[in-house]
Design a protein around this nucleic acid. Sequence first.
DNA 1: AAAAAATCGCGTACTTTATACGCAAAACTA
DNA 2: TAGTTTTGCGTATAAAGTACGCGATTTTTT
Lengths: 255, 255
Amino acid sequence: MNFQEEVQKFIQEHFQNTLPTIALDLVIFGFHENQLKVLLLRWKGGDYWMLPGGRVYKKEDVDDAATRILRERTKLEMLFLQQFHVFGKLNRSSYFSAQETYKLLGIENLYSPDFRDVSVGYYALVEYTKVNPVADNFSDECRWWSIDELPCLLFDHNDIIRVALKTLRRQLSYQPVGYNLLPEIFSMTDLQSLYETILGRQLDRRNFYKQMMTYGILELSESSPKIASRKTPYLYRFKKERYEQLLDDEELTIG
Amino acid sequence: MNFQEEVQKFIQEHFQNTLPTIALDLVIFGFHENQLKVLLLRWKGGDYWMLPGGRVYKKEDVDDAATRILRERTKLEMLFLQQFHVFGKLNRSSYFSAQETYKLLGIENLYSPDFRDVSVGYYALVEYTKVNPVADNFSDECRWWSIDELPCLLFDHNDIIRVALKTLRRQLSYQPVGYNLLPEIFSMTDLQSLYETILGRQLDRRNFYKQMMTYGILELSESSPKIASRKTPYLYRFKKERYEQLLDDEELTIG
DNA sequence: AAAAAATCGCGTACTTTATACGCAAAACTA
DNA sequence: TAGTTTTGCGTATAAAGTACGCGATTTTTT
């Protein structure tokens, strides 16, 4: 059984167990070396990249399916995951036409001009170092890409990432961010770098410090030095109760 | 052909032309007599109410389908319409079980425990007086309901309205609202009443006035009196360019 | 008809939040 | 050892948000 047949068989079986028409796409954000990263998959045998995604089992909540897919790719539990947009255009191809895409994927025989998927976009924030990227059945490789060095992705996935980033930026203005993107212990500078990277602009160090302090989401880690200096800055952790209180004030998690 | 058979025939035909699994639900907001209203449909022959909704034709953008449904119910064009959440739980019934719901609707024979829909929620802002509510094929009646006097709706539609309202309230904090909810010419008090109703709290008249002026979205109508007073307050209209500029800054309309 | 109450536009004072920038201590650079 | 960088923390100023006053006009009350 060659690759095409194998994929075809898998797809057919998978489609029988999952909801038709609905697909999920996940924009999984990580943060490393002052860069915002996104987890991408490389399709088997080619050099074409796409977002991790999947389908919803017939007896599964849509949000649960997104959680499952995120867990499969990252091997992580308990993450920040939020649906942000539905991508439902008839033509969801940016750089390659639909037919071209099937050809690139080596499954040209599966192409049908009538087929379409409506995709529910989710974005997740995960801790870069804790992630062990795992490819799925259709992929050879799963790895991080820097958000400003993305290749041309399949389907409309560049658009999806753009909207996800916009949503994340907006989230930053009314909710704290960082709990799932940073290690448990971090310095104020680490947190500020994260914010600067997401927002794409510089922030004043001293004002940032003050703002975080008034939010009350940080507490000194016990490993902090008594006297802070260049080599040994204070280390913080998030006060989870307060952090999640600020999250809950605005979250929409019904459905 | 009795009602059940008629409905069944219509549903089957409709389902053949539309995408499976995906439904749309519309929360259409209007404003009248200092109350926020929502457009609801009464199912044929019963006293059970639900949100207007519909399905997506196989060759139709999802957003276009929402626009079409909104137009069908209101006979209006060019409205503010925005998708806000996907409702994808396995069990989307709040007050009546799925089977019970089918019974209430008089289509018990169509019930299947395996059937499920994932619903994309849209909310719209329309001008109350301009709307001519039109029932659909399954409904006897389409009319406005005050947002705080809603009955127990079918499915999870009370939840959907709650999330829509929350989204609308948030929108108010970073975007102007009113263009599609008020008549072309209105007084400052009218606009303030709208804001107070949406936010569910009182605002200071004088501060509200100042804030709207700094936004720069209002201009005096030519029908305004030279000297304002109780009986004859100044009348305003929206400066559309400035208004839409503020909208565009934050809108997410890809997909 | 006069007094009281309500509503309108517009203004001022105060408080909270956001932004700009200063400074000393520690540690690295050379 | 002198200069530079990075850290925590402070102060001054600007902007945004909130409380409330006032006179003119109209409606309601008596």
